[in-house]
Amino acid sequence: MTALDRVSLTIPKGTFTAVMGPSGSGKSTLLQCTAGLDRPTSGAVMLGDTDLTKLSETKLTLLRRGRIGFVFQAFNLLPSLTAEQNVALPLRLAGRRPKRSTVLGVLEQVGLRERAGHRPSEMSGGQQQRVALARAIVTRPEVLFGDEPTGALDSQTSREVLALLRGMVDRGQTVIMVTHDPVAASYADRVLFLADGQVHDELHAPSAEQVASRMTRLSVVPC
C-alpha cells in the first residue's frame, strides 16, 4: 500500500500550512516525512538547501534538534521538571548551555513567565501545551510541526494556542500543522486536503465553513 503517491509541494517560509484529510489519507506520513522522522522510498525532502533523505541518522538527529520544532497532541512534558527546565531541555540535548534569560523570554512569549517554577501537575492542559510550544521554539527552529496540537484542549484554550501559533507566523515562523478541526485550520494561510495519499485540493485564507465544506466533499472522493 502506498502511503503517499507522487506528492509534490512547496511550503513558503514564514507561512502557516494546515494539512487535513480522512483517516488513512496520508496526513501523518506527510508530516513525518517532511519533518525527517520517516524516509520516503523515493523523492526528496528539502529544508532550504538540505535534502533530508541524503543525511545519515546522526546528522538527521542533529538537524531535527537545531532546525525543526515539534508540538504534539500529548504535551510530553517531563513531570519532575519545572516549566523552565522542560523548555531548556532541547538546548541541553543539543549540547548548549541554556541562558536563563532566553528560556524565560520564550516562556514570556507564550504568556507563562510567571509559571516558570511550576511543574506540569501544577498547570492546566492549556498551560502545559503552551510550555510544550515554548520548548519547541526555544531552539529557533526553521519549521515548527504540529500534530493535532489542540486536539486535547477545550475550544477556548484551543483558540488561545492557535492564536499564539498565528502570531509566531506573523513574526516569520514557518508552521505546518496536521489537524481534523476546521476551526483550527482556519488560522492557517493555506489548507492542503489529502485523500488516498495525494493532494486533492487546497484553500487559501480559508474560513472554518469553507474548510468543513471541502472536507465533506473530500469524504466522498472515489477511491
Rank of each mutant, 00 (worst) to 15 (best):
M1D: 15
M1I: 08
A3N: 08
L4A: 09
R6Q: 05
R6P: 07
I11Q: 00
I11H: 09
I11E: 03
G14D: 01
A18R: 01
V19N: 09
M20L: 10
G21F: 01
P22L: 08
P22G: 05
P22T: 00
P22H: 05
G26T: 04
S28Q: 14
L30W: 04
Q32F: 14
C33F: 15
D38P: 14
D38E: 13
P40S: 05
T41L: 14
S42T: 08
S42Y: 13
G43V: 07
A44I: 11
V45M: 04
M46W: 15
D49G: 02
T61H: 08
L62I: 07
R64G: 09
G66Y: 13
G66E: 13
R67N: 04
I68H: 08
I68L: 15
I68T: 07
F72V: 00
F72W: 12
A74W: 10
S80Y: 14
L81R: 08
A83W: 12
Q85R: 15
Q85E: 15
Q85S: 00
N86K: 00
N86Y: 13
V87C: 10
A88F: 13
R92T: 13
L93I: 15
L93R: 11
L93E: 03
A94T: 04
R97V: 15
R97M: 10
P98W: 09
K99S: 07
R100I: 08
S101G: 04
S101L: 12
T102R: 11
L104K: 10
G105S: 00
G105W: 14
G105F: 11
V106C: 02
E108T: 12
G111Q: 03
G111C: 01
L112V: 03
R113M: 15
G117I: 04
H118R: 15
H118L: 02
P120G: 07
M123E: 07
S124M: 08
G126H: 02
Q128M: 08
Q129M: 08
R130D: 03
A132S: 03
A132F: 00
L133G: 10
R135C: 01
T139E: 03
T139N: 14
E142Q: 03
E142M: 13
E142Y: 05
F145W: 06
E148Q: 11
T150D: 07
T150V: 05
G151H: 01
L153K: 06
D154P: 00
S155I: 01
T157M: 05
S158R: 09
V161L: 01
L162A: 01
A163E: 14
L164W: 10
L165Y: 03
G167K: 05
G167D: 00
V169S: 00
D170N: 04
D170H: 14
G172H: 09
M177P: 04
H180A: 05
H180N: 02
V183L: 13
A184H: 12
A184D: 02
A185Q: 00
Y187M: 06
D189C: 06
R190T: 06
V191G: 05
F193D: 06
L194D: 02
A195C: 06
H200Q: 14
D201F: 13
H204D: 10
A205F: 15
A205C: 00
P206C: 06
A208S: 12
E209H: 12
Q210W: 12
Q210S: 09
Q210C: 01
A212T: 05
S213K: 13
M215N: 06
R217A: 08
L218F: 02
V220M: 06
V221Y: 02
P222A: 09
C223T: 12
C223E: 04
